[in-house]
Amino acid sequence: MTENDQLRHGRTCVTDLQVHLVFVTKYRRNVFDDTILTSMETIMRNVCHDLDARLIEFNGEDDHVHLLVEYPPKLPVSTLVNSLKGVSSRLLRKQYKLKTHHNHLWSPSYYAASSGGTTLETLKTYIRNQRRPD
C-alpha cells in the first residue's frame, strides 16, 4: 500500500480501517515534554510500519497521547495497542529517565474508537434506503 492510497486492497477484500487511540501514563503522571513526544512519534511510526499499519496523526500532552492509525484487517487492535505501548515504554524508559511507577510507563487501559469518512447517521440512512426486493 502506498501513502496516497485511500483503500487497502487485499486478495479477497478492500478495506479502509482507522482507529483513534488514546494512551495515558500510569497514575496520569506528567512525564512527557516536546522532546519525548517527538521521539515517541518516531518509535510509534516505526512500530506501525513493522505491523503493516500507518500512523496518520500523532500528538500528546504531558500525561497522554492521541494516535490515528490505519491498519490491515488481519491485525487485531489489541495487538496493535500492545505493540505500540510495549515498544514505546521500553525504548523511552531506556532513552530518558522517566518518572514511572515500577517501570510501567502506561496505564494498562486505553481508549480506541473506529473512525471513518462519514458519520454513523449517514451510514444508517444509506443502509435504510437500500432497495429491498419485494
Score class of each variant (00 low, 15 high):
H20K: 06
H20C: 07
L21Q: 04
L21G: 02
L21P: 00
V22Y: 08
V22D: 10
F23G: 02
V24F: 12
T25H: 06
R29G: 08
N30M: 13
V31S: 06
D34V: 12
T35W: 11
T35I: 10
T35Q: 14
L37N: 06
T38C: 12
S39C: 13
M40C: 14
E41H: 09
T42M: 11
I43D: 02
I43E: 02
R45I: 03
N46S: 14
V47Q: 02
V47L: 03
V47I: 08
H49C: 08
D50Q: 13
D50P: 05
L51W: 03
A53R: 00
A53E: 02
R54H: 13
L55C: 04
I56P: 02
E57L: 09
E57A: 14
F58M: 03
G60M: 09
G60K: 07
G60W: 05
E61D: 09
D63Q: 11
H64D: 12
H64R: 09
V65Q: 00
V65N: 03
H66S: 08
L67M: 15
L67W: 01
L68K: 02
L68T: 01
Y71S: 01
P72V: 01
P73K: 03
P73E: 11
P73Q: 07
P73F: 07
P73T: 05
L75I: 05
P76A: 15
P76L: 05
T79F: 10
T79I: 12
L80S: 00
V81Y: 04
V81L: 07
V81D: 00
L84M: 03
K85N: 05
K85Y: 04
K85S: 04
K85E: 03
K85V: 00
V87K: 00
V87G: 01
V87W: 00
L91R: 15
L91I: 12
L92C: 10
K94S: 13
T100A: 07
H101F: 15
S109R: 12
S109C: 09
Y110H: 10
Y111C: 10
Y111L: 13
A112F: 07
A112G: 04
A113E: 15
A113P: 01
A113R: 08
A113G: 10
S115H: 06
S115C: 14
G117V: 06
G117W: 08
T119W: 11
T119Y: 12
